[in-house]
Amino acid sequence: MSKQPLKIMLIDDENIVGKRLKPALEKTGDIVETFEEGEKALARFDETPFDIVVTDIRMENIDGIEILEQVLAKSGRTKVIIITGYATVEIAREALSKGAFDFIAKPFKPADLRGIIERASKELRSGFLHTT
């Protein structure tokens, strides 16, 4: 079963993130677009929705929670993953309750993020809402 490449959006105002994550994530053949500004990212999202959005939680102009809320409003199926800084795990839990798929705290290896993205993509592919 061939896997469709994922469209992944990466948002972080620190360019080290985009710089290092993009090549790492593209290794699996997924399409990655990086943004350092939240507004630009959201505008792009309006043009074409992404499967996965990975966003830092705390940024200068528009923060990760806002991005989360707006993305989920625009597209119910997009999985949003939050990157938290070293000290913002509390907020990350809040993000989870607002609908984020998962979070990952810096410092992390790109491989760890890839693992989360894979899980997210599994859910996307089976196209369901988990019920018990």
Partner: peptide, 16 residues
């Protein structure tokens, strides 16, 4: 370990 190049971290991590 973090300096070996693979990790993504922020300045806050180093300051901490």
């Amino acid at each position: 370990e973090k300096a070996l190049g693979e990790y993504i971290f922020d300045r806050h991590y180093v300051v901490t």
